[in-house]
Amino acid sequence: MKRSELIFQSIALITLAVAFILFWNFSKGVSFVENGTLFDATVTDSYSVLQENLNRMIPILLGAILFSVAIAFYLEEYLARTSWKYQIIARQIAILASIPSLLYGILGTYFFVFKTEFGSFFTHALTFVLLVLPITIQSTQRAIRGVDISVREAAYALGAKRRHVIVHHVFPHAFSTIMAGIFIAISRTLAISALIIVVYVWTEHTPQSGDPFHIPGSVIVLLLLSLLSSVLSSFLEAKTNWS
């Protein structure tokens, strides 16, 4: 058999397997979504835990994105890379970004839940921000660095001030890359959250009926979110293509 045929058949088999898994998942999960439990957060299963988390994550996420973009611009546009401030902040961010995500979960549980009086919202917020922020800051920094120096020089040569250069030139040029980095960070967080939720529900809750976990339903929601994230990312890239 030719190598190309082998590759083609392997791809076809994998595609078939993925299609089967998706079909199985949707056939199991759609009924759950259709039953009206989509917006019922009182159900103690993996899906409702996920939904509750998502409700809290959205405002926190927006805040974290704005904060991380601001920090990245401060680092790249206002500090010299050789300055001690840049070195200290950038290295701390690099260390935080390299820590496995699971450790953030353990840290969140141990420190914010057992050792402080914070409410549940703050527990979520602080853990999530700690998890996402270093990754989004680093990706935004890379996007800003990717903007050619000639763009800055051309704008400065016209007498533009730093804020003009950042708002009108560097940010628009870097926007699609910044958003791509943010979407990757969100996807990573969603994926990890999904795993933890499934394991948590499985180990903590005794099943009362045949299938109380509604994992297929949760997977549908996650898939839809990933699809939405991908479509939004493509839309933004198309809208911000300056070349």
Partner: peptide
Amino acid sequence: LPLPVGLP
């Protein structure tokens, strides 16, 4: 500059 720099 030598090459055009397109401002967005």
